[in-house]
Structures are given as C-alpha cells and as structure tokens.
Design a protein around this nucleic acid. Structure first.
Length: 224
DNA sequence: AACCAGGAGAGAG
DNA sequence: CTCTCTCATGGT
C-alpha cells in the first residue's frame, strides 16, 4: 500500500466516514456552493446558499433571469459579493447556453474540466469540486489544507502547481470518486482540528500530522 | 484590533 | 510562467 492510501486509512480511522459532507440537495446547489465558499468558511457560504434557495434562485434558469443586484444582496454573508454574484451569473449562463440548463450534462462533454475552467470565476479547485461532488467524477480536489499538510509530510512541495499535486494523488489512488470525496473531506476535518497558530512548525500540529504516517497494524510490515 | 479564511482574475515583470 | 494586488465578510 502506498503512503497516500495509507494516510487515507489513518484519517478515516481517526475521524470516521464523512459521508454527504458537501451541502446541497441538487448538483447545481453543489456548484453554487463551490463558488460561494471561495476563500470563506462553509458556515458563511451556507447562509448565502440558503438565501438563494429560499428565494428560489437555486436553478440555472432562475439565476439566469434574475437581476445581479438581487444576487448580490442575497449572497452577502459569503463575502466578495460583487464578484461572486457575477461568477454565479456566468455559471448560470454557461449551464443554460451550453448544457441545456442541466449541469449534469457536463458528463457528456469530452473535456468537462476545460469547459468549466472557461467560465470566468471557476478556477481549478472550484472546477474539480463541481466535477467530484456534483457529478461524481473522479477528480481530486487540492485546497490550501491539502497543500500544507502534505508538504509538512514532505509528500509534495509547498509551492508545486495545482495540477502536479492533483496528479500525484490521482496516480497514487484508484480512480474512485467516492474515495476522493471522502479523502478531501477528511483532510479538511483534520485541518480544522489543528491549533490556530499559523506557524507551520507548531510541534503539536506537526505531531498530529506525523500520526498520519504511522501504522497501527503490523509494525513490521515493509510495504508502506 | 489585526489577521486570515477551503480562491480567482487581472495586470506587471 | 510567477509574483502581487484586489475583492468583503465574519470569526478569533
């Protein structure tokens, strides 16, 4: 078993299954959430998402037709309302005009990731989040936590490009969307339970990270 | 009371 | 391609 798979099992043992971790009842909710949560906490993004749902602005058509100022006022709790309102509009326009108003149709495209990245406001992490959590496609999501934790373990370089890190994970793991979902959720859970100090050399935190490498099974096994 | 959070785009060099 | 700046709100 390689290190990436081993760490996954350690995380799961420590924190348990995270199942249905990404909020949203429809694939489009999940896509909206992916934009709203950019550089903010989930609690803030969730309030904004709920506001949209309450006003029935949770479908591509509805967002397409509503005034952008209306969107701004509803998503205010998520921050960056001026740009995120535009991003949501772009997502709605793209979905209506290229996907027949259904985000699921992304699956039928030959290059779904490139298509998403062509939408202004959707970068790599957001695109992968949508592909993975809304469409169940095996794209690994790399966020700031992933970068920090795995660079502390010397398994990736802190300043490595996004796609390199994602590819490292995907090469080491089976191409399984459910596995990728759990893994990302567990990384976030692990990160949330660290101390507030930003120092990357905090002893307690480093120790916690190193727990991920240790084996709780047969201590003499050689294949990890 | 400063500082940053699960980011992304634009502009500069 | 790699920096740096900006965008806004809520929590410590």
């Amino acid at each position: 078993m390689n290190r990436f798979m081993h760490i996954y099992k350690q995380l799961k043992q420590m924190y348990g299954a995270q199942k249905a971790w990404w909020p949203g009842e429809t694939p489009f909710h999940i896509a909206i959430g992916a934009i709203l949560t950019q550089n903010t906490t989930w609690t803030s993004a969730y309030k904004a998402l709920q506001n949209l749902i309450c006003q029935n602005l949770d479908t591509p058509q509805a967002l397409y037709n509503t005034d952008i100022e209306n969107i701004k006022s509803l998503i205010k709790p998520a921050g960056f309302m001026n740009q995120k309102a535009g991003y949501l509009k772009n997502l709605a326009i793209f979905t209506c005009e290229h996907l027949d108003c259904c985000i699921r149709n992304l699956k039928k495209l030959s290059h779904p990731r490139e298509a998403l990245l062509s939408v202004k406001g959707i970068g790599k992490e957001t695109a992968d989040s949508i592909l993975l959590y809304a469409l169940d496609m095996p794209y690994f999501v790399v966020d700031a936590y992933t970068r920090r934790i795995f660079s502390r373990l010397s398994l990736v370089n802190e300043k490595e490009p996004y796609d390199n890190i994602a590819q490292t994970f995907m090469s080491a793991l089976p191409q399984d969307a459910e596995l990728y979902k759990e893994y990302h959720a567990l990384i976030v859970e692990h990160a949330k339970r660290r101390c507030k100090k930003k120092s990357p050399l905090c002893e307690g935190c480093l120790l916690k990270d190193l727990c991920l490498l240790q084996t709780t099974e047969d201590p003499y096994r050689q294949d990890i």
